[in-house]
Design a protein around this nucleic acid. Structure first.
Length: 469
RNA sequence: GCCCCCGUCGUCUAGCGGCCUAGGACGCCGCCCUCUCAAGGCGGUAACGAGGGUUCAAAUCCCUUCGGGGGUACCA
Protein backbone atom coordinates (compact mmCIF):
# COMPACT_ATOMS: atom_id res chain seq x y z
CA UNK A 1 0.00 0.00 0.00
CA UNK A 2 2.82 2.40 0.78
CA UNK A 3 4.30 1.53 -2.58
CA UNK A 4 1.00 2.39 -4.25
CA UNK A 5 0.76 5.71 -2.43
CA UNK A 6 4.34 6.55 -3.27
CA UNK A 7 3.71 5.88 -6.94
CA UNK A 8 0.58 8.01 -7.03
CA UNK A 9 2.64 10.73 -5.41
CA UNK A 10 0.64 10.99 -2.21
CA UNK A 11 3.37 11.63 0.29
CA UNK A 12 3.30 11.92 4.06
CA UNK A 13 5.43 13.98 6.41
CA UNK A 14 5.44 11.62 9.31
CA UNK A 15 5.05 7.90 9.80
CA UNK A 16 6.45 4.59 8.63
CA UNK A 17 8.28 4.50 5.36
CA UNK A 18 9.99 2.01 3.13
CA UNK A 19 13.59 2.82 2.40
CA UNK A 20 15.14 2.36 -1.00
CA UNK A 21 16.67 -0.90 0.13
CA UNK A 22 13.22 -2.17 1.09
CA UNK A 23 13.61 -1.97 4.85
CA UNK A 24 10.92 -0.44 6.98
CA UNK A 25 11.91 2.67 8.91
CA UNK A 26 10.16 5.82 9.97
CA UNK A 27 10.39 9.56 9.80
CA UNK A 28 8.89 12.10 12.16
CA UNK A 29 9.40 13.13 15.77
CA UNK A 30 6.48 11.41 17.45
CA UNK A 31 7.18 7.75 16.87
CA UNK A 32 7.32 4.91 17.14
CA UNK A 33 4.81 4.65 14.32
CA UNK A 34 4.00 0.99 14.24
CA UNK A 35 1.31 -0.16 16.61
CA UNK A 36 3.31 -3.24 17.47
CA UNK A 37 5.96 -0.94 18.92
CA UNK A 38 3.50 0.97 21.07
CA UNK A 39 1.80 -1.87 22.87
CA UNK A 40 3.28 -0.89 26.24
CA UNK A 41 1.64 2.52 25.90
CA UNK A 42 -1.74 1.04 25.07
CA UNK A 43 -1.47 -1.30 28.02
CA UNK A 44 -0.54 1.54 30.36
CA UNK A 45 -3.51 3.55 29.19
CA UNK A 46 -5.81 0.57 29.56
CA UNK A 47 -4.66 0.01 33.17
CA UNK A 48 -5.45 3.61 34.02
CA UNK A 49 -8.83 3.51 32.34
CA UNK A 50 -9.56 0.37 34.30
CA UNK A 51 -8.37 1.82 37.61
CA UNK A 52 -10.57 4.86 37.05
CA UNK A 53 -13.59 2.62 36.58
CA UNK A 54 -14.19 3.41 32.94
CA UNK A 55 -14.03 -0.22 31.92
CA UNK A 56 -15.24 -3.65 32.94
CA UNK A 57 -14.18 -7.20 32.28
CA UNK A 58 -16.06 -9.51 29.95
CA UNK A 59 -15.23 -13.20 29.96
CA UNK A 60 -17.60 -14.23 27.19
CA UNK A 61 -15.98 -15.82 24.18
CA UNK A 62 -16.48 -14.53 20.66
CA UNK A 63 -18.62 -17.57 19.96
CA UNK A 64 -20.87 -16.93 22.93
CA UNK A 65 -21.30 -13.32 21.94
CA UNK A 66 -22.04 -14.19 18.38
CA UNK A 67 -24.67 -16.66 19.47
CA UNK A 68 -26.18 -14.07 21.78
CA UNK A 69 -26.36 -11.46 19.04
CA UNK A 70 -27.91 -13.90 16.61
CA UNK A 71 -30.55 -14.75 19.18
CA UNK A 72 -31.24 -11.08 19.90
CA UNK A 73 -31.62 -10.29 16.24
CA UNK A 74 -33.86 -13.21 15.56
CA UNK A 75 -35.95 -13.35 18.71
CA UNK A 76 -36.21 -9.68 19.42
CA UNK A 77 -37.33 -10.07 23.01
CA UNK A 78 -34.47 -8.54 24.93
CA UNK A 79 -34.06 -5.66 22.51
CA UNK A 80 -31.36 -4.95 19.98
CA UNK A 81 -27.99 -6.75 20.21
CA UNK A 82 -26.22 -3.96 22.05
CA UNK A 83 -23.56 -4.86 24.58
CA UNK A 84 -23.90 -2.65 27.64
CA UNK A 85 -22.46 -2.83 31.12
CA UNK A 86 -25.97 -2.81 32.58
CA UNK A 87 -26.59 -6.30 31.25
CA UNK A 88 -23.09 -7.58 30.63
CA UNK A 89 -21.03 -6.61 33.62
CA UNK A 90 -20.13 -9.52 35.85
CA UNK A 91 -20.02 -9.31 39.62
CA UNK A 92 -16.59 -9.52 41.26
CA UNK A 93 -17.46 -13.01 42.48
CA UNK A 94 -18.40 -14.21 39.03
CA UNK A 95 -15.20 -12.81 37.63
CA UNK A 96 -13.15 -14.48 40.33
CA UNK A 97 -14.74 -17.81 39.65
CA UNK A 98 -14.29 -17.40 35.93
CA UNK A 99 -10.63 -16.47 36.39
CA UNK A 100 -10.12 -19.50 38.58
CA UNK A 101 -11.50 -21.62 35.77
CA UNK A 102 -8.93 -20.06 33.52
CA UNK A 103 -11.37 -18.17 31.35
CA UNK A 104 -9.62 -15.16 29.81
CA UNK A 105 -11.49 -11.87 29.82
CA UNK A 106 -11.40 -8.87 27.54
CA UNK A 107 -11.66 -5.26 28.67
CA UNK A 108 -14.63 -3.23 27.55
CA UNK A 109 -15.06 0.51 27.66
CA UNK A 110 -18.08 1.58 29.66
CA UNK A 111 -20.16 3.88 27.46
CA UNK A 112 -23.16 5.87 28.75
CA UNK A 113 -26.33 3.80 29.07
CA UNK A 114 -28.44 6.55 27.60
CA UNK A 115 -28.36 10.10 26.38
CA UNK A 116 -27.12 11.52 23.13
CA UNK A 117 -23.73 12.19 21.52
CA UNK A 118 -23.29 14.76 18.82
CA UNK A 119 -20.47 14.38 16.36
CA UNK A 120 -19.63 17.46 14.35
CA UNK A 121 -18.37 16.55 10.94
CA UNK A 122 -16.86 18.88 8.38
CA UNK A 123 -18.65 17.34 5.46
CA UNK A 124 -21.86 16.18 7.08
CA UNK A 125 -22.59 18.65 9.82
CA UNK A 126 -24.00 17.49 13.15
CA UNK A 127 -24.81 13.83 13.53
CA UNK A 128 -26.67 12.54 16.54
CA UNK A 129 -26.33 9.11 18.08
CA UNK A 130 -28.17 7.53 20.94
CA UNK A 131 -25.75 5.93 23.40
CA UNK A 132 -28.29 3.19 24.07
CA UNK A 133 -27.72 1.92 20.54
CA UNK A 134 -23.96 1.79 20.81
CA UNK A 135 -22.20 -1.28 22.15
CA UNK A 136 -19.38 -1.03 24.64
CA UNK A 137 -16.29 -1.63 22.54
CA UNK A 138 -13.57 -4.07 23.55
CA UNK A 139 -10.46 -1.97 23.96
CA UNK A 140 -8.15 -4.76 25.06
CA UNK A 141 -8.42 -8.33 23.89
CA UNK A 142 -8.34 -11.18 26.34
CA UNK A 143 -4.74 -11.80 25.29
CA UNK A 144 -3.89 -8.28 26.44
CA UNK A 145 -3.41 -6.69 23.02
CA UNK A 146 -5.04 -3.40 22.20
CA UNK A 147 -7.83 -3.12 19.65
CA UNK A 148 -8.16 -0.42 17.04
CA UNK A 149 -10.47 1.88 19.07
CA UNK A 150 -7.92 2.15 21.86
CA UNK A 151 -4.79 2.27 19.73
CA UNK A 152 -6.29 4.75 17.33
CA UNK A 153 -7.45 7.14 20.03
CA UNK A 154 -4.20 6.95 21.93
CA UNK A 155 -2.12 7.52 18.82
CA UNK A 156 -4.20 10.42 17.53
CA UNK A 157 -3.84 12.25 20.80
CA UNK A 158 -0.22 11.32 21.55
CA UNK A 159 0.83 12.31 18.05
CA UNK A 160 -0.98 15.58 17.86
CA UNK A 161 -3.61 14.77 15.28
CA UNK A 162 -6.19 17.53 15.14
CA UNK A 163 -8.08 16.56 11.98
CA UNK A 164 -9.36 13.06 11.50
CA UNK A 165 -10.16 12.61 7.84
CA UNK A 166 -11.31 9.18 6.75
CA UNK A 167 -13.95 7.21 4.94
CA UNK A 168 -17.62 7.36 5.75
CA UNK A 169 -17.45 3.73 6.80
CA UNK A 170 -15.90 4.89 10.06
CA UNK A 171 -18.58 7.44 10.83
CA UNK A 172 -20.62 5.20 13.08
CA UNK A 173 -17.58 4.41 15.16
CA UNK A 174 -16.85 8.02 15.97
CA UNK A 175 -18.90 8.41 19.19
CA UNK A 176 -16.79 5.91 21.12
CA UNK A 177 -13.67 7.60 19.82
CA UNK A 178 -14.88 10.99 21.02
CA UNK A 179 -15.63 9.49 24.41
CA UNK A 180 -12.19 7.91 24.63
CA UNK A 181 -10.60 11.20 23.71
CA UNK A 182 -12.38 12.97 26.54
CA UNK A 183 -11.37 10.31 29.01
CA UNK A 184 -7.73 10.21 27.95
CA UNK A 185 -7.26 13.95 27.97
CA UNK A 186 -9.69 15.05 30.64
CA UNK A 187 -8.18 13.03 33.40
CA UNK A 188 -4.58 13.24 32.30
CA UNK A 189 -4.54 9.49 31.77
CA UNK A 190 -2.61 9.67 28.56
CA UNK A 191 0.10 11.94 29.95
CA UNK A 192 0.61 9.64 32.92
CA UNK A 193 0.78 6.59 30.70
CA UNK A 194 3.27 8.26 28.39
CA UNK A 195 5.51 9.03 31.33
CA UNK A 196 5.19 5.52 32.70
CA UNK A 197 6.41 3.82 29.53
CA UNK A 198 9.16 6.36 28.99
CA UNK A 199 7.80 7.98 25.87
CA UNK A 200 8.28 11.74 25.46
CA UNK A 201 5.46 13.87 26.83
CA UNK A 202 2.95 15.27 24.42
CA UNK A 203 4.06 18.40 22.66
CA UNK A 204 2.57 21.43 24.44
CA UNK A 205 1.03 22.48 21.16
CA UNK A 206 -1.00 19.30 20.90
CA UNK A 207 -4.64 19.89 21.61
CA UNK A 208 -7.60 17.57 21.33
CA UNK A 209 -8.84 16.29 18.00
CA UNK A 210 -10.82 19.28 16.89
CA UNK A 211 -12.19 18.20 13.56
CA UNK A 212 -13.63 15.13 11.92
CA UNK A 213 -14.26 14.79 8.21
CA UNK A 214 -15.91 11.68 6.87
CA UNK A 215 -15.43 11.51 3.15
CA UNK A 216 -17.92 9.73 0.91
CA UNK A 217 -17.02 6.24 -0.18
CA UNK A 218 -15.51 5.60 -3.55
CA UNK A 219 -17.45 2.70 -4.94
CA UNK A 220 -17.05 0.37 -7.86
CA UNK A 221 -19.45 0.11 -10.80
CA UNK A 222 -21.48 -2.18 -8.55
CA UNK A 223 -21.92 0.62 -5.99
CA UNK A 224 -20.14 -1.42 -3.34
CA UNK A 225 -17.24 0.04 -1.45
CA UNK A 226 -13.76 -0.48 -2.79
CA UNK A 227 -11.71 -2.22 -0.15
CA UNK A 228 -8.24 -1.18 0.86
CA UNK A 229 -6.89 -4.35 -0.56
CA UNK A 230 -8.66 -4.13 -3.88
CA UNK A 231 -7.78 -0.49 -4.06
CA UNK A 232 -4.09 -1.05 -3.81
CA UNK A 233 -4.19 -3.92 -6.24
CA UNK A 234 -5.81 -1.73 -8.81
CA UNK A 235 -3.28 1.01 -8.28
CA UNK A 236 -0.59 -1.41 -9.43
CA UNK A 237 -2.84 -2.36 -12.29
CA UNK A 238 -3.38 1.26 -13.31
CA UNK A 239 0.34 1.73 -13.29
CA UNK A 240 0.91 -1.22 -15.60
CA UNK A 241 -1.78 0.01 -17.94
CA UNK A 242 -0.04 3.30 -18.28
CA UNK A 243 -2.18 5.70 -16.34
CA UNK A 244 -0.20 8.72 -15.25
CA UNK A 245 -0.01 9.34 -11.49
CA UNK A 246 -0.89 12.97 -12.08
CA UNK A 247 -4.05 11.83 -13.84
CA UNK A 248 -5.01 9.72 -10.84
CA UNK A 249 -4.41 12.60 -8.46
CA UNK A 250 -6.55 14.92 -10.52
CA UNK A 251 -9.33 12.42 -11.06
CA UNK A 252 -9.46 11.23 -7.47
CA UNK A 253 -9.74 14.79 -6.20
CA UNK A 254 -12.80 15.21 -8.39
CA UNK A 255 -14.59 12.28 -6.81
CA UNK A 256 -16.90 14.01 -4.40
CA UNK A 257 -15.52 17.46 -4.97
CA UNK A 258 -15.53 20.09 -7.68
CA UNK A 259 -13.87 23.49 -7.77
CA UNK A 260 -16.05 26.58 -7.70
CA UNK A 261 -15.64 27.38 -11.36
CA UNK A 262 -16.27 23.84 -12.53
CA UNK A 263 -12.88 23.23 -14.17
CA UNK A 264 -11.91 19.62 -14.26
CA UNK A 265 -8.33 19.71 -15.38
CA UNK A 266 -6.39 20.71 -12.30
CA UNK A 267 -2.70 20.37 -11.55
CA UNK A 268 -1.25 19.66 -8.12
CA UNK A 269 -0.77 23.28 -7.17
CA UNK A 270 -4.32 24.18 -8.08
CA UNK A 271 -5.56 21.18 -6.18
CA UNK A 272 -3.85 22.06 -2.92
CA UNK A 273 -4.82 25.69 -3.28
CA UNK A 274 -8.48 25.09 -4.00
CA UNK A 275 -9.47 21.83 -2.36
CA UNK A 276 -11.85 22.37 0.52
CA UNK A 277 -13.21 19.69 2.82
CA UNK A 278 -16.31 21.71 3.51
CA UNK A 279 -17.14 21.66 -0.20
CA UNK A 280 -16.93 17.89 -0.44
CA UNK A 281 -20.16 16.18 -1.44
CA UNK A 282 -21.94 13.70 0.75
CA UNK A 283 -22.91 10.87 -1.55
CA UNK A 284 -20.74 7.97 -2.63
CA UNK A 285 -18.95 8.34 -5.94
CA UNK A 286 -18.51 5.59 -8.50
CA UNK A 287 -15.06 5.22 -9.98
CA UNK A 288 -15.42 5.66 -13.74
CA UNK A 289 -12.50 4.18 -15.65
CA UNK A 290 -13.73 5.65 -18.94
CA UNK A 291 -13.49 9.16 -17.62
CA UNK A 292 -10.12 8.45 -16.04
CA UNK A 293 -8.96 7.16 -19.39
CA UNK A 294 -10.12 10.26 -21.21
CA UNK A 295 -8.32 12.45 -18.68
CA UNK A 296 -5.21 10.38 -19.14
CA UNK A 297 -5.29 10.85 -22.90
CA UNK A 298 -5.48 14.60 -22.47
CA UNK A 299 -2.50 14.57 -20.14
CA UNK A 300 -0.47 12.38 -22.44
CA UNK A 301 -1.08 14.86 -25.24
CA UNK A 302 0.24 17.68 -23.04
CA UNK A 303 3.51 15.93 -22.23
CA UNK A 304 6.67 17.21 -23.93
CA UNK A 305 7.75 14.60 -26.49
CA UNK A 306 10.99 13.88 -24.64
CA UNK A 307 9.16 13.24 -21.39
CA UNK A 308 6.65 11.00 -23.06
CA UNK A 309 9.45 9.01 -24.65
CA UNK A 310 11.04 8.41 -21.26
CA UNK A 311 7.77 7.38 -19.70
CA UNK A 312 7.06 4.97 -22.52
CA UNK A 313 10.28 3.01 -22.10
CA UNK A 314 9.16 1.03 -19.01
CA UNK A 315 6.18 -0.21 -20.99
CA UNK A 316 8.41 -1.52 -23.75
CA UNK A 317 11.36 -3.03 -21.91
CA UNK A 318 9.40 -5.39 -19.70
CA UNK A 319 9.40 -3.24 -16.57
CA UNK A 320 5.66 -2.52 -16.54
CA UNK A 321 4.30 -5.15 -18.86
CA UNK A 322 5.11 -8.35 -20.65
CA UNK A 323 6.37 -6.67 -23.78
CA UNK A 324 10.11 -6.79 -24.33
CA UNK A 325 10.49 -4.80 -27.50
CA UNK A 326 13.41 -2.79 -26.20
CA UNK A 327 16.73 -3.82 -24.78
CA UNK A 328 17.29 -2.76 -21.24
CA UNK A 329 18.70 -0.20 -21.33
CA UNK A 330 17.53 0.68 -24.82
CA UNK A 331 20.13 1.01 -27.56
CA UNK A 332 20.64 4.30 -29.33
CA UNK A 333 19.04 2.80 -32.42
CA UNK A 334 15.95 1.74 -30.53
CA UNK A 335 15.66 5.15 -28.93
CA UNK A 336 15.92 6.80 -32.32
CA UNK A 337 12.96 4.78 -33.55
CA UNK A 338 10.98 5.51 -30.39
CA UNK A 339 11.66 9.23 -30.63
CA UNK A 340 10.51 9.18 -34.22
CA UNK A 341 7.39 7.28 -33.29
CA UNK A 342 6.31 9.45 -30.36
CA UNK A 343 5.07 12.43 -32.40
CA UNK A 344 3.08 10.04 -34.56
CA UNK A 345 1.28 8.33 -31.69
CA UNK A 346 1.11 10.93 -28.96
CA UNK A 347 -2.26 12.30 -29.92
CA UNK A 348 -3.81 8.89 -30.40
CA UNK A 349 -2.88 7.36 -27.07
CA UNK A 350 -4.96 7.26 -23.94
CA UNK A 351 -2.78 4.90 -21.98
CA UNK A 352 0.97 4.41 -22.05
CA UNK A 353 0.69 0.67 -22.58
CA UNK A 354 -0.88 1.25 -25.99
CA UNK A 355 2.63 1.96 -27.21
CA UNK A 356 3.23 -1.77 -27.35
CA UNK A 357 0.85 -2.26 -30.25
CA UNK A 358 2.00 0.85 -32.03
CA UNK A 359 5.70 0.20 -31.64
CA UNK A 360 5.83 -3.48 -32.53
CA UNK A 361 6.01 -3.04 -36.30
CA UNK A 362 8.70 -0.38 -35.96
CA UNK A 363 10.93 -2.10 -33.46
CA UNK A 364 10.85 -5.52 -35.04
CA UNK A 365 12.41 -6.60 -38.26
CA UNK A 366 9.52 -8.80 -39.34
CA UNK A 367 5.86 -8.00 -39.17
CA UNK A 368 3.00 -10.46 -38.95
CA UNK A 369 -0.09 -9.42 -40.80
CA UNK A 370 -3.22 -9.17 -38.71
CA UNK A 371 -5.70 -11.71 -40.14
CA UNK A 372 -8.69 -9.43 -39.68
CA UNK A 373 -6.96 -6.61 -41.49
CA UNK A 374 -5.96 -8.93 -44.29
CA UNK A 375 -9.52 -10.20 -44.60
CA UNK A 376 -10.92 -6.68 -44.58
CA UNK A 377 -8.44 -4.92 -46.84
CA UNK A 378 -6.64 -7.36 -49.12
CA UNK A 379 -9.89 -8.76 -50.44
CA UNK A 380 -10.99 -5.39 -51.82
CA UNK A 381 -10.51 -4.40 -55.45
CA UNK A 382 -7.15 -2.82 -56.16
CA UNK A 383 -5.37 -4.27 -53.16
CA UNK A 384 -2.44 -6.05 -54.73
CA UNK A 385 -2.33 -3.56 -57.54
CA UNK A 386 -1.75 -0.78 -55.02
CA UNK A 387 0.93 -2.72 -53.19
CA UNK A 388 2.80 -3.59 -56.34
CA UNK A 389 2.52 -0.06 -57.67
CA UNK A 390 3.82 1.29 -54.36
CA UNK A 391 6.81 -1.02 -54.54
CA UNK A 392 7.60 0.19 -58.00
CA UNK A 393 7.17 3.86 -57.26
CA UNK A 394 9.05 3.86 -53.96
CA UNK A 395 12.26 2.12 -55.04
CA UNK A 396 14.12 5.21 -56.01
CA UNK A 397 12.25 8.02 -54.30
CA UNK A 398 13.95 10.23 -51.74
CA UNK A 399 13.14 8.58 -48.39
CA UNK A 400 11.35 11.50 -46.82
CA UNK A 401 7.75 11.84 -45.76
CA UNK A 402 7.16 14.48 -48.42
CA UNK A 403 8.65 12.50 -51.29
CA UNK A 404 6.89 9.32 -50.21
CA UNK A 405 3.59 11.16 -50.07
CA UNK A 406 4.12 12.71 -53.49
CA UNK A 407 4.88 9.32 -55.00
CA UNK A 408 1.89 7.56 -53.44
CA UNK A 409 -0.50 10.42 -54.16
CA UNK A 410 0.07 9.80 -57.82
CA UNK A 411 -1.23 6.24 -57.62
CA UNK A 412 -5.01 6.84 -57.48
CA UNK A 413 -4.96 8.39 -60.93
CA UNK A 414 -2.93 5.57 -62.35
CA UNK A 415 -5.05 2.84 -60.75
CA UNK A 416 -8.39 4.55 -61.09
CA UNK A 417 -9.37 4.16 -57.42
CA UNK A 418 -9.59 6.55 -54.49
CA UNK A 419 -6.61 7.25 -52.31
CA UNK A 420 -8.20 5.52 -49.38
CA UNK A 421 -8.32 2.35 -51.40
CA UNK A 422 -4.63 2.53 -52.24
CA UNK A 423 -3.45 3.59 -48.79
CA UNK A 424 -5.12 0.80 -46.84
CA UNK A 425 -3.47 -2.17 -48.57
CA UNK A 426 -0.11 -0.45 -48.33
CA UNK A 427 -0.70 0.25 -44.66
CA UNK A 428 -1.54 -3.36 -43.93
CA UNK A 429 1.46 -4.58 -45.89
CA UNK A 430 3.87 -2.21 -44.16
CA UNK A 431 2.57 -2.22 -40.59
CA UNK A 432 0.59 -5.43 -40.46
CA UNK A 433 -2.62 -3.69 -39.53
CA UNK A 434 -5.38 -1.57 -40.99
CA UNK A 435 -4.89 0.77 -38.05
CA UNK A 436 -1.59 2.56 -37.75
CA UNK A 437 0.04 5.94 -37.40
CA UNK A 438 -0.10 8.12 -40.53
CA UNK A 439 1.17 6.16 -43.52
CA UNK A 440 3.84 8.38 -45.07
CA UNK A 441 5.49 9.12 -41.76
CA UNK A 442 5.32 5.44 -40.86
CA UNK A 443 7.05 4.41 -44.04
CA UNK A 444 9.75 6.97 -43.52
CA UNK A 445 10.35 5.72 -40.01
CA UNK A 446 10.45 2.11 -41.17
CA UNK A 447 13.11 2.92 -43.72
CA UNK A 448 13.24 2.09 -47.40
CA UNK A 449 14.66 -1.36 -47.05
CA UNK A 450 12.16 -2.71 -44.54
CA UNK A 451 9.25 -1.00 -46.27
CA UNK A 452 10.02 -2.44 -49.68
CA UNK A 453 10.69 -5.82 -48.23
CA UNK A 454 7.32 -5.86 -46.48
CA UNK A 455 5.51 -4.70 -49.59
CA UNK A 456 7.15 -7.42 -51.60
CA UNK A 457 6.26 -10.01 -49.03
CA UNK A 458 2.63 -8.93 -48.83
CA UNK A 459 1.86 -8.64 -52.52
CA UNK A 460 1.40 -12.39 -53.09
CA UNK A 461 -0.79 -12.60 -50.02
CA UNK A 462 -2.98 -9.86 -51.37
CA UNK A 463 -3.25 -11.66 -54.69
CA UNK A 464 -4.19 -14.82 -52.85
CA UNK A 465 -6.81 -13.02 -50.82
CA UNK A 466 -8.40 -11.80 -54.01
CA UNK A 467 -9.02 -15.37 -55.03
CA UNK A 468 -5.97 -16.66 -56.88
CA UNK A 469 -4.18 -14.97 -59.72
C1' G B 1 -33.68 -6.54 12.85
C1' C B 2 -31.35 -2.09 14.97
C1' C B 3 -28.26 2.49 14.27
C1' C B 4 -26.05 6.09 10.92
C1' C B 5 -25.30 8.32 6.12
C1' C B 6 -26.87 9.35 1.21
C1' G B 7 -30.51 10.20 -3.21
C1' U B 8 -29.77 15.93 -9.92
C1' C B 9 -28.45 12.94 -16.98
C1' G B 10 -25.68 5.78 -17.58
C1' U B 11 -21.23 7.99 -14.57
C1' C B 12 -18.58 12.38 -11.95
C1' U B 13 -20.86 16.83 -10.81
C1' A B 14 -22.88 22.55 -10.84
C1' G B 15 -27.10 24.17 -8.34
C1' C B 16 -27.65 26.23 -1.78
C1' G B 17 -36.18 29.79 -3.10
C1' G B 18 -37.08 33.18 -8.42
C1' C B 19 -31.15 33.92 -13.09
C1' C B 20 -33.31 26.27 -14.31
C1' U B 21 -37.84 25.29 -20.69
C1' A B 22 -31.58 22.41 -14.81
C1' G B 23 -25.22 24.04 -16.65
C1' G B 24 -20.33 21.37 -17.42
C1' A B 25 -17.34 16.81 -17.99
C1' C B 26 -16.93 11.41 -19.41
C1' G B 27 -19.77 8.00 -22.31
C1' C B 28 -23.06 7.43 -26.41
C1' C B 29 -25.16 9.19 -31.39
C1' G B 30 -24.69 12.34 -35.81
C1' C B 31 -21.99 15.79 -38.91
C1' C B 32 -17.33 18.23 -40.43
C1' C B 33 -12.09 17.31 -41.16
C1' U B 34 -9.48 13.01 -43.07
C1' C B 35 -4.69 7.88 -45.97
C1' U B 36 -6.67 4.08 -41.25
C1' C B 37 -7.19 5.03 -36.12
C1' A B 38 -7.12 8.98 -33.24
C1' A B 39 -7.01 14.16 -32.16
C1' G B 40 -9.82 18.58 -33.18
C1' G B 41 -14.47 21.35 -34.44
C1' C B 42 -19.88 21.50 -34.47
C1' G B 43 -24.57 19.50 -33.03
C1' G B 44 -27.56 15.98 -30.36
C1' U B 45 -29.19 12.22 -26.47
C1' A B 46 -30.07 11.98 -21.29
C1' A B 47 -31.53 13.69 -14.68
C1' C B 48 -34.06 16.71 -10.03
C1' G B 49 -36.69 8.50 -7.03
C1' A B 50 -42.10 9.00 -5.34
C1' G B 51 -46.02 11.39 -2.44
C1' G B 52 -47.50 15.16 0.61
C1' G B 53 -46.82 19.95 2.64
C1' U B 54 -44.55 25.38 3.38
C1' U B 55 -44.35 29.59 -0.18
C1' C B 56 -46.70 34.32 -4.80
C1' A B 57 -42.61 30.88 -6.34
C1' A B 58 -39.06 24.61 -4.77
C1' A B 59 -34.04 20.60 -7.66
C1' U B 60 -33.33 23.95 -3.63
C1' C B 61 -37.05 24.21 3.07
C1' C B 62 -40.18 20.36 6.12
C1' C B 63 -42.55 15.45 6.60
C1' U B 64 -43.50 10.61 4.84
C1' U B 65 -42.20 6.86 1.69
C1' C B 66 -39.14 4.11 -1.54
C1' G B 67 -34.27 3.07 -2.96
C1' G B 68 -28.86 2.69 -2.25
C1' G B 69 -24.73 2.44 1.00
C1' G B 70 -22.14 1.90 5.67
C1' G B 71 -22.02 -0.04 10.56
C1' U B 72 -23.75 -3.57 13.86
C1' A B 73 -16.33 -7.93 15.46
C1' C B 74 -11.82 -9.85 21.24
C1' C B 75 -10.94 -6.49 11.94
C1' A B 76 -9.07 -2.00 10.97
Amino acid sequence: MMEALAWIGLDWDEGPKVDDDGSLTARGAYGPYRQSERSALYAAVARRLEAAGHTYRDDRTSEELEAWRAAQRAGGDGGPPVVKASTFERSPEELERSAAEGRPASLRLRTPEDGEVVVTDLVRGEIRFDWATISDPVIERSDGSATYPLANSVDDLAQGIDLVCRGEDLLSVTPRQVLLHELLLGEGLLDDALAEVGLPARDPSFGPVTRFAHLPMVVGPDRKKLSKRHGSVSVQEFRRQGFLPETLRNYLALLGWAPKDGRERLNDDELVAEFDLAAVGRSAAAFDVDKLTAFNGERIRELPAGTLTERLVPHLDGTEGEAALLSSPPTEDELRVLRGLVPLVQERMQRLDEIVDYAGPFLQQEVTLDPDSVAKVFTKAGSYEAIEAAERVLVDVDWTTEAIEAALRALPDELGIGFGKVAQPIRVAATGSSVSPPLFESLELLGRERSLQRLAAAAPQARAARGGG
